[in-house]
């Protein structure tokens, strides 16, 4: 039962590819595998801690003002990750730019907090936060890997393709149109797999 809380967000209800939420960061920062992994970990951190905090104090949050309370708690954790990333991983911070503070309006986080943590226990919320966070990270990491491989011919900065490709990579892929095209293809593949199962 508990394990379902964890696995639900990874594949069956993958936030990006199935529910189509949290699209902005997914498309914007997935130009390299490194950036996507960094964004994914930041979201796992904020989502899991917000879920734990809110589910542990859920009995004290009046229903009418729950959304502002959620936003304050979420933005606290976002500020924590914002300043830590700025101090310890400045390169990543520079690449992610405005999308680090914008984690606060990522619909995945408000959605899980409102839809799950506010109604469930602390341990279940922890698993749910981790699961949805990993689902998001998986989607953004796949996108980042595809775009970096094709667009720069590298993976985590290492050359993987022959020199000829390296000199003329498909630059289109790391530009904004490539992001839209990769996510369209991934969603198409998901639809096709779902269609053939039914």
């Amino acid at each position: 039962m508990q394990s379902r809380n964890f696995t639900n967000g990874i594949l069956k209800n993958n936030p990006v590819l199935v529910l189509m939420i949290g699209l902005c960061p997914t498309l914007a920062v997935s130009t390299t595998a490194f950036n996507s992994l960094g964004m994914g970990i930041a979201v796992i951190f904020v989502l899991t801690l917000s879920n734990i905090t809110i589910s542990s104090i859920r009995k004290f949050i009046p229903e009418n003002i729950r959304i502002p309370v959620f936003i304050v708690i979420i933005s606290t954790f976002v500020t924590v990750i914002d300043y830590n990333m700025y101090a310890f991983i400045p390169d990543l911070y520079k690449n992610l730019g405005v999308f680090v503070p914008l984690i606060v309006v990522n619909c995945i986080i408000l959605g899980r907090v409102e839809g799950f943590a506010y109604k469930n226990g602390v341990f279940a919320s922890l698993l749910d936060g981790l699961g949805s966070g990993i689902g998001f990270t998986l989607a953004i990491f796949i996108m980042g890997s595809i775009r970096e491989l094709l667009g720069s011919g590298t993976f985590f900065g290492f050359n993987v393709f022959p020199q000829g490709f390296q000199n003329n990579p498909v630059i289109f892929m790391i530009l904004p149109p490539g992001g839209f095209l990769v996510i369209a293809s991934l969603m198409g593949i998901m639809n096709h797999l779902k269609g053939s199962q039914a």
Binding site: F180, S185, M187
Partner: peptide, 22 residues
């Protein structure tokens, strides 16, 4: 095509629009 109905085709359209804006 069936697999692209709904959001995937919208994203492909967005990709082409974005290419034009480049």
């Amino acid at each position: 095509p069936d697999a692209l109905k709904g959001s995937p085709i919208a994203f492909i359209t967005a990709s082409l629009t974005s290419l034009a804006f480049l």
